[in-house]
């Protein structure tokens, strides 16, 4: 019911689950660069890599499909745009808009987006939100001296994530309160329904501000201050993490470098 975009964390004990979140974050970053630069050969290799990651993490095909589903229309649109609006040799004589080049581009671009979403989904499904935040925080920590407040960003993100379900519950309560007084959210045209949503948004915003006020007070009461703090779990690279990071980096950089070799 209460899902975040891309796919919620699915607890597990797979090798991918156990990796340090930083390894996974860096892998996804590198992978994204490779995906956006890749041609057909790299594409196949990356697809194999992603498949391996999904299998290793023990995620079912259904889970991955569920992550892709909300974007299905976007993928179709993307594919069609390239299919119909790329100049080149027609595939069918009667349908000159559809070209070989269009088919190729459409497939390549759509694949790129699907691959990006799948890699992000594997990351978020195998990493607890708190670990994810912790991983980002630790990766950003070296930039503290450049004025990047990594600790404050981490608190901001984790508080935001923590309040998503609470606020959803609140919306539901408000909706029920209004339905109980005769409001009808189900019927009417789009504009009508949007206008009705506004009657939920305004109290929600006000309520959230009040919550934020109290939360700030509570945080202050528990000794919150800007800048460095410590955590329950301080992330630590194990030997496996080092090996995995090294292997993945070498693999992906090698893949990139391949394109510059005269083959």
């Amino acid at each position: 019911m209460k899902t975040l975009p891309l796919g919620q964390f699915i607890p597990g004990d797979s090798p991918v689950h156990r990796l340090d979140p930083r390894v996974k974050i860096l892998t996804v970053l590198l992978l994204s660069i490779v995906i956006l630069n890749s041609g057909a050969v790299e594409g196949l290799v990356v697809t194999a890599f992603l498949l391996a990651a999904v299998v290793l993490s023990g995620l079912s095909a259904g889970r991955i499909a569920a992550a892709l589903k909300p974007l299905a229309w976007f993928f179709v649109l993307l594919f069609c745009l390239h299919l119909f609006f790329t100049d080149g040799r027609p595939v069918f004589a009667i349908l000159p808009a559809v070209t070989h080049e269009g088919l190729e581009r459409g497939t390549a671009v759509t694949w790129q987006f699907v691959a990006l979403v799948v890699s992000a989904a594997v990351l978020t499904m195998t990493t607890a939100p708190s670990e994810l935040v912790g991983g980002f925080e630790k990766l950003l920590r070296p930039f503290n001296r450049l004025g990047v407040p990594s600790h404050d960003i981490a608190i901001m993100v984790s508080v935001a994530l923590r309040f998503v379900p609470t606020l959803l519950e609140e919306v539901e309560r408000m909706r029920e309160a209004q339905v109980a007084r005769g409001a009808d959210f189900g019927r009417g045209g789009l504009i009508r329904r949007l206008r009705k949503m506004a009657t939920l948004v305004i109290p929600l915003v006000l309520c959230t501000f009040r919550r934020a006020d109290e939360l700030a007070l509570a945080m202050e009461g528990r000794g919150y201050h800007r800048g460095p703090r410590t955590y329950l779990r301080e992330l630590k690279f194990t030997r496996v993490d080092y090996a995995a990071l090294l292997a993945v980096t070498a693999f992906l950089i090698g893949l990139e470098a391949l394109r510059f070799l005269p083959l």
Partner: peptide, 30 residues
């Protein structure tokens, strides 16, 4: 200080992380 509405004072994404928030602010070792 424990406030009236617990929903507005729990910061952590899990119970243990929330309890760890205060000690973390004190800068204690994990």
């Amino acid at each position: 200080m424990v406030f009236q509405n617990p929903d507005n004072q729990i910061v952590g994404m899990s119970v243990e992380e929330d309890v760890a928030f205060g000690p973390g602010n004190l800068g204690l070792a994990p």
